[in-house]
């Protein structure tokens, strides 16, 4: 199947657009933001229609509200402890449940000590529209794999479009440029939350500002932005 199967690929589509008539034979793989309607492929969300090389379609939009999906990584805020679960706010329609045993090395005796307001980096294990989503801080083999509570640091919110950019591979220019001259940790959740930590506050502020302002910048512009910010910080410190 050719990459440009439909003329709408790579274009901005709006909710309710009929994108292509479904063929009588063959398989069309459909991802987020699309549905079948009376023999046509219809978009239900605004965004840019994308297609993988294998022919799967999906819509890449931008929205602030997070709708949980299985295997997404999220940054959550613990809001409550209910028996064997932590209730975690992940910026979605419902609070997510994080079982106390879904941490590396956690047992009935040795429970993780999380308080209200603590941050956790977790992945979504179940996400049904009718039920509250569930999170886990371990991978399939029971190892933490980087998930777990986030200590200290600074949290800010952005749109899911920027989160996708930050999580893409290769990493975006702004992160590469920052990483060359600064030492910091960054955690990006698909739910529009980004956590930054570094040895000093000035670096944390610089990184968060650079990331927040990089959303609509090209590679060269992002590098220039980081250069300018670094020069400013050095000037005030020196």
């Amino acid at each position: 199947m050719s990459a440009s199967h439909t003329s709408a690929v790579g274009k901005v589509v709006l909710p309710g657009d009929n994108l292509l008539s479904l063929p009588d034979q063959g398989v069309i793989r459909v991802g987020a933001g699309l549905r079948q309607s009376e023999g046509y492929l219809q978009s239900i969300k605004p965004g840019v229609l994308k297609q993988t090389k294998s022919g799967k379609y999906w819509i890449e939009g931008r929205q602030k509200r997070y709708i949980p999906a299985v295997d997404d990584v999220v940054v959550g805020v613990v809001s409550d402890r209910q028996g064997d679960n932590f209730a975690v706010d992940i910026n979605g329609p419902f609070p997510a449940a994080l079982p106390v045993l879904a941490f590396e090395g956690a047992t009935r005796r040795n429970r993780p000590n999380l308080q209200e307001g603590d941050l956790v980096y977790a992945r979504v294990t179940t996400a049904y529209r009718d039920a509250d989503p569930e999170l886990s801080c371990v991978d399939a083999s029971g190892k933490s794999a980087g998930f777990g509570p986030l200590k200290d640091g600074y949290l800010f919110t952005c749109t899911n479009a920027l989160c996708r950019q930050l999580l893409s591979s290769p990493p975006p220019a702004v992160l590469l440029a920052l990483g060359k001259s600064l030492q910091f940790e960054i955690v990006v959740g698909m739910n529009g939350r980004v956590w930054v930590n570094s040895p000093n506050c000035a670096t944390t502020v610089l990184v968060s500002n650079a990331v927040l302002n990089s959303e609509f910048l090209s590679q060269a512009q992002a590098e220039l932005l980081v250069k300018k910010l670094l020069a400013q910080v050095q000037q005030t410190q020196g």
Binding site: S7, G16, D17, N18, L20, S21
Partner: peptide, 14 residues
């Protein structure tokens, strides 16, 4: 009024 946009590949749905 509802709006309905159809791309060339689905022009019959217009």
């Amino acid at each position: 009024c509802t709006t309905c946009r159809s791309w060339p590949e689905a022009s019959a749905a217009q």
